[in-house]
Write a protein that binds this DNA or RNA. Structure first.
Lengths: 201, 201
DNA sequence: CCATTTTCATACCGATCGGTATATAGGCAT
DNA sequence: ATGCCTATATACCGATCGGTATGAAAATGG
């Protein structure tokens, strides 16, 4: 994070990080295609030319919002992998997801889930990006579970990749239920049930 | 299904059921908001005035498409409840979902999942409808699992409502993964893993 | 044969979409 | 003070959105 090199010309009157954070909220509630430039600029408190000068265009803005989302909201995913046992990893992942989904006003799915399911039209660049990020995080989870299996932390018959896919599916399904109006209590119950299903060594 | 009462005036040149089926395909791949009237009319082989005369408007068309979807694609849900055991119910639900998602060209989520997650803008009528249908199907599943528990078909500590929510989440997560480019083999593996997790009596 | 009724094809409607041209305002360095 | 450079504000762009007005075409009832 180097300081601004020089400030030539009129200084901008908004904080790009604050604006990006506001854009993220809009994308999160509306999805990529559902978020209009009018909504975005109003939430960000800037005009369209400022948005384009600072962020490029709507698509570039979304990619930057995804960066911020991973950095701010999905950081629990990395720290979850530090749990001592596979069971602990699963529980941290589930509880972290629960916290994100129920943190705002009303529960909603992960932004990645929304983008994967919703983006259909010409937004293959968006979808490709989201899928790549998901694949990277899946890879880390699989590696962690492989280590767990080597440490005797998973039953012998359990394939790490398979259980990673399974856990991811439950987490994504939680997001769908959140989008469908599930209450925080229901989502927490889902976490409990999933943990009760987790295989014992 | 009464026959057409009388045919006065110029007869229509298309089959409404075929047109509706084509519209369903478009909605299923594009989502409600992502499907444009241009795409719809082209796929249906009719013009916009014909669409509006026959189906009302885009929203009414979607509701009718949802009816058709439930009738044609989701019928396995009802028959799954006829399985003799709770485990059989779960397996039929999972395999039925797998079949639907991998039946077309490339895997995709259930239309209900797409609609719940994606519809954000003014389409609360759409979302309300989808959520109500989901609630109805959830209710049937819960009742079936309650019966299973009464029959000693579920472990004592398992709450029917909780495991119904859990199973629904896995199924919805399967849809998200299908949207995210999962292969049929991966989806089948997810079914296997979920079944391996299913509690034993 | 004609009037009526309904559908079809075309062209059009206002609103909104993402994106920009233009001109003004506000900071630096000289 | 004067250029110079950049951000701002406003108005505008073509394209597309969902939805319709209009008139011709195709069937029936009389």
């Amino acid at each position: 994070m180097a300081a601004e090199p020089v400030t030539r010309g009129r200084p901008r009157e908004f904080d790009p990080e604050e604006a990006l954070s506001a854009a993220l909220q809009v994308f999160w509630t509306r999805g990529y295609e559902g978020a209009s430039l009018a909504e975005l600029t109003e939430a960000m408190g800037i005009t369209k030319p400022s948005l384009y000068a600072c962020f490029g265009n709507k698509e570039a803005l979304f990619h930057k919002a995804l960066d911020l989302y991973e950095r701010d909201k999905l950081c629990y995913m990395r720290s979850a992998l530090d749990a001592p046992t596979a069971r602990g990893v699963a529980e941290r992942l589930l509880r972290g997801t629960l916290q994100i989904q129920t943190g705002g006003s009303d529960p909603r799915a992960c932004l990645g889930v929304i983008s994967m399911v919703a983006c259909t039209t010409q937004a293959d660049s968006i979808k490709t990006d989201v899928i790549a990020r998901r694949a990277s995080s899946d890879k880390a989870l699989v590696e962690r579970l492989e280590r767990a299996k080597a440490e005797g932390d998973l039953p012998a018959g359990v394939e790490p990749a398979a259980i990673a896919t399974y856990l991811t599916a439950v987490i994504q399904g939680m997001g769908v239920q959140a989008s469908g109006g599930a209450t925080p209590a229901q989502l927490e119950q889902l976490v409990e049930t999933t943990m009760a299903m987790w295989p014992t060594v």
